[in-house]
Computed example of a mutant assay.
Amino acid sequence: MLSGDRTESRADAHGALQNQLAETIEKRTAGEDDRGTAIANLTFFRREKQAGPTPCLIEPSIVFVAQGAKQLLIGEQAYTYDTERFLIASLDLPGSSQVLEGSPEKPCLGLALRLDLRVISELVAHVRLPAPRERVCDSSAALGTITPALMVPFARLLALLDQPDEIEVLAPLIEREIHFRLLKSDVAGRLLQIASVGSQGHRIARAIDWMKVNYARQLSIEELANYVQMSASSLHHHFRQLTAMSPLQYQKWMRLNEARRLMLNENQDAAAAAFNVGYESPSQFSREYSRLFGAPPKRDIGTLRERAGSAGGRVTANA
């Protein structure tokens, strides 16, 4: 076979896999923005119009677009991902997501698979991949190239949704293969830096895990730095490098998003939600909430409930 023929054959195979993923997601997201699946770590998204930046939290995950295009904004960095490039986040990242290409006739369709950094660490040890050189990384998000080697296990993972009795046994195996493929891809260095015990990235990941449990407490940078065995100045520097926020800004972001969840899903009023996430002043909470979400708590929650009602389900923020 001539080289031109081989290239065309690979392109055809790539397109066929993309279409297969898009058809599965479109079928399972009709009338919804975001849809969980019977595979616990896998979610689908559908956007039928272009939209400006919307605040969101990106979990450690890989995000694939099977049709259309999206963009994630983290600080001053913009990551555009589409049918050729995927997005990967190795930490819980606050950001803003926007739809660049999507319409009712041809919606933006995609999936997000939550990553397990413990699996990555195990794989690194098992296959003896070289540890990354210690260096400062400018972000914990990155773009990678979509390849057939990565798309094939995703196609098999989605096919399990039609075989629910096989999910419990086979899904973890396929997810593990996807983690392995990522370690062989062009984003391997980013994952290695976070998963390698003792690296600065790994310490920041531990700091974020601690903050997720203790977000309602008054934050002591010295205490957090001691917990992850860093100096306060090093913690602050590397934290901002990886998340585009200081630890205090990150805590505020977590508090406001948890308060939003409490009001939306547990019907708490603004004062109760503010108190439960660590605010002492309802007026300060309202000011900071409006600054982040663009509207005061009562109006923002009302808008979200209207959207949920028109979409026939709960509205969530997804990369």
Rank of each mutant, 00 (worst) to 15 (best):
residue 13 A to R: 09
residue 151 M to S: 10
residue 48 E to I: 15
residue 237 H to V: 06
residue 111 L to P: 13
residue 66 A to N: 03
residue 230 M to L: 13
residue 85 R to K: 13
residue 291 R to W: 04
residue 28 R to S: 08
residue 50 Q to K: 13
residue 32 E to H: 15
residue 58 I to Q: 08
residue 55 P to Y: 02
residue 124 V to W: 04
residue 57 L to T: 15
residue 53 P to C: 07
residue 160 L to Y: 01
residue 250 Y to V: 02
residue 238 H to T: 14
residue 271 A to C: 13
residue 69 A to C: 00
residue 279 Y to A: 05
residue 61 S to L: 00
residue 162 D to S: 10
residue 176 R to W: 03
residue 124 V to R: 14
residue 136 V to I: 15
residue 45 F to P: 00
residue 264 L to H: 02
residue 52 G to D: 13
residue 158 L to A: 04
residue 164 P to Q: 08
residue 69 A to F: 05
residue 57 L to F: 12
residue 253 W to S: 11
residue 159 A to G: 09
residue 275 F to M: 13
residue 52 G to K: 03
residue 285 F to E: 09
residue 37 T to Q: 04
residue 146 I to D: 06
residue 267 N to E: 09
residue 62 I to H: 01
residue 17 L to N: 12
residue 253 W to K: 10
residue 148 P to T: 02
residue 129 L to T: 08
residue 307 R to G: 14
residue 236 H to V: 14
residue 68 G to R: 00
residue 199 S to T: 07
residue 229 Q to V: 01
residue 61 S to K: 05
residue 156 R to F: 09
residue 67 Q to Y: 00
residue 290 S to V: 03
residue 74 I to F: 02
residue 218 Q to M: 14
residue 158 L to D: 08
residue 93 L to R: 04
residue 196 S to G: 06
residue 262 L to T: 08
residue 173 L to Q: 14
residue 239 F to H: 03
residue 182 L to V: 10
residue 309 G to S: 12
residue 94 P to I: 02
residue 184 K to S: 12
residue 55 P to V: 09
residue 115 L to E: 04
residue 108 C to N: 10
residue 202 H to A: 11
residue 317 A to D: 11
residue 248 L to C: 09
residue 114 R to M: 13
residue 196 S to E: 13
residue 64 F to S: 07
residue 30 A to M: 07
residue 309 G to H: 12
residue 211 M to R: 05
residue 209 D to R: 04
residue 249 Q to A: 15
residue 164 P to D: 02
residue 63 V to D: 14
residue 6 R to H: 09
residue 313 G to C: 05
residue 196 S to V: 07
residue 115 L to F: 04
residue 201 G to E: 11
residue 311 A to C: 12
residue 212 K to W: 07
residue 199 S to C: 01
residue 49 K to Q: 15
residue 102 G to H: 00
residue 282 P to D: 00
residue 167 I to D: 02
residue 119 V to E: 11
residue 25 I to R: 03
residue 86 F to H: 08
residue 278 G to E: 07
residue 183 L to V: 05
residue 275 F to E: 15
residue 125 A to I: 00
residue 78 A to R: 01
residue 126 H to Y: 10
residue 180 F to M: 06
residue 173 L to E: 13
residue 231 S to Q: 09
residue 219 L to P: 12
residue 233 S to T: 13
residue 252 K to N: 08
residue 3 S to L: 14
residue 289 Y to F: 15
residue 290 S to F: 00
residue 51 A to G: 12
residue 191 L to C: 09
residue 309 G to V: 06
residue 14 H to F: 15
residue 288 E to A: 03
residue 123 L to R: 05
residue 17 L to C: 10
residue 31 G to K: 04
residue 45 F to R: 01
residue 209 D to Q: 11
residue 141 A to K: 04
residue 96 S to Q: 14
residue 13 A to T: 04
residue 152 V to A: 14
residue 127 V to C: 12
residue 9 S to E: 14
residue 84 E to Y: 01
residue 288 E to H: 11
residue 264 L to R: 10
residue 218 Q to F: 13
residue 97 S to A: 10
